[in-house]
């Protein structure tokens, strides 16, 4: 069973939830072989019923203590542009499609998502282009995201502070 995990973190992003559970988006996912959609809706007003989407198996919830398990089980992650969500998905080595909320202005969190897109670590779209992106996207262009190297920081600091 191929799973898609949609996450909005601690924010609300009803437009994304509405678009991804629409018949067109579900059909696009189905055409790509995905047959299960797990949706984390955060503070959003919309918490879709399991039977509201006839084309695909749907599970929806607001929050969990940890999303690590859902991320681990997913074959594709669709996320809002939040840095925490992006880094968690990439850290787990999952293909990631970021949907930007273009109704949020001056959101500094976009900086990271944009840069990671430039570096080919994730795909990037808005709600209005989401269905089209699901139809046409090519996940093979994505490059793996190597984890940061805190050891470099520790080595630098040891030297700077005179630790032997």
């Amino acid at each position: 069973m191929k799973k898609v995990f949609v996450t909005v973190g601690t924010t609300s992003f009803d437009e994304l939830i509405e678009t991804i559970t629409s018949a067109e988006a579900a059909q696009a996912l189905k055409a790509r072989g995905y047959d299960c959609l797990v949706v984390q809706v955060g503070r959003g007003a919309l918490l879709p019923d399991a039977d509201s989407c006839p084309h695909i198996r749907l599970e929806a919830f607001r929050y969990k203590n940890s999303l690590a398990e859902d991320i681990e089980r997913a074959d594709l992650i669709i996320s809002h542009a939040g840095s925490g969500s992006c880094l968690e998905a990439l850290g787990a080595g999952k293909p990631l499609l970021v949907v930007v909320n273009d109704k949020l202005m001056n959101n500094h969190q976009l900086e990271l998502a944009k840069q990671l897109h430039i570096d080919s670590h994730l795909l990037y779209c808005t709600c209005s282009t989401l269905t089209e992106t699901l139809r046409t996207m090519d996940l093979s262009v994505l490059r793996p995201f190597s984890p940061g190297q805190p050891q470099n920081f520790a080595n630098f600091l040891d030297k700077a502070l005179g630790i032997k």
């Binding site: 840095s83 900086e111 990271l112 944009k114 840069q115 920081f153």
Partner: peptide, 13 residues
């Protein structure tokens, strides 16, 4: 000694 590490979220500013 004050050590500051800017968050990875900050790319341009």
């Amino acid at each position: 000694v004050i050590v500051y590490v800017e968050s990875i979220c900050r790319v341009q500013t």
